[in-house]
């Protein structure tokens, strides 16, 4: 095994690996920030990712086509987004309760169904022959070996720009934000806040569906609870990216970097693998604290308000 060098951490392959893990969080984060902007934060991302990832695995295995798998994941995401919307908007349930329950429900359901699959479908946990490999594009930079990344990675980055433009440069984006910030005024100009909220909820489902398909591809197949709290990391990124698509993406990239550093340190045997597994989670928490302290120091006027506000 090679000696550990810090230059290994800033190589082109590290960069790509960072982007690779961050893409899941970016996609899920985009979905979450849409609902946050519309005034109801969906924290059921993990469940939607796992559920749509499972459907993608089954469909792509049965149909032997990655495109159908991706479509199935998107459709599952949309259905779950609609379900969340109906529960929270129409039936006025608590958004956190629904989000947390959605996570547990879908993770348990997909595990249950996964175990009930016929024996020949057990190949779902390996990529070979399942039909799911999403086409990859090959990138090379100078002398380093070409690195393959999924086409969903550039798609995710384009979607970030699309979301940014949509939210801040279009009428619908304006209405969507108004539905969260001031639903009454949106109503007074004859627009339905509920409609915008449904739109956000559906978008969240679709984004998480795509994240599920990507994750399936990224970790080489479905396994029980395979989203590994990445959905919650996305929620954390949305919180300190203040729901701005670009800032959320930066936060997600930071998460990807921490994850990559952890993996690299593990490869070189510097730190025990059981400890590096905690890196992304601990890093995310530290990042939240640092940012919150920074924001608090910057706005001394609002200090009293924040300290008092428990809810």
């Amino acid at each position: 095994m090679n000696a550990f060098q810090f230059s290994d951490l800033i190589s082109f392959s590290s960069l790509m690996s960072t982007l690779g893990t961050a893409t899941i969080v970016i996609l899920a984060g985009l979905g979450c920030l849409m609902t946050e902007k519309a005034g109801m934060m969906n924290i059921g991302l993990d469940g939607i990712i796992t559920g749509s990832g499972f459907v993608a695995a089954v469909v792509s295995w049965a149909a032997d086509s990655w495109a159908l798998g991706l479509l199935a994941a998107l459709a599952t995401g949309l259905i779950l987004g609609l379900f969340y919307g109906v529960m929270v908007i129409r039936l006025k349930s608590d958004e956190f309760v629904i989000g947390v329950t959605l996570n547990m429900f879908l993770i348990a359901l997909s595990t249950f169904l996964y175990r009930s699959l016929p024996a020949e479908a057990n190949g779902l946990h390996v990529t070979e022959g399942t039909g799911m490999p999403i086409p990859k594009i090959s990138l090379s930079m100078g002398s380093s070996n070409p690195i393959n990344i999924s086409i969903l990675v550039p798609v995710a980055l384009i979607l970030v720009a699309v979301c940014q433009v949509f939210l801040y440069r279009t009428r619908h984006g304006f209405w969507l934000r108004a539905a969260g910030e001031h639903p009454e005024s949106l109503q007074s100009v004859g627009r339905s806040p509920a409609k915008m909220k449904y739109m956000a909820s559906l978008a969240c489902g679709a984004f998480c569906g795509m994240a599920g398909a990507y994750l399936l591809n990224y970790v080489d197949g479905f396994s029980e609870g395979f989203s590994a709290s990445r959905g919650y990391i996305a929620v954390a990124c949305v919180i300190f990216g203040r729901s701005n698509p670009l800032l959320v993406t930066l936060a997600a990239l930071f998460f990807g970097l921490v994850d990559t550093v952890g993996q690299r340190l593990q490869v070189f045997g510097v730190v025990d693998s059981n400890l590096t597994a905690a890196f992304p989670y601990a890093g995310t928490i530290l990042m939240m604290i640092v940012l919150a302290v920074y924001n608090k120091a910057r706005k001394p006027k609002r200090k009293a308000e924040t300290a008092e506000a428990v809810k």
Partner: peptide
């Protein structure tokens, strides 16, 4: 710091 406890407890 007004950081959502749902997220922080899950990560912890």
């Amino acid at each position: 710091l007004n950081i959502s406890e749902v997220v922080s407890t899950i990560l912890l």
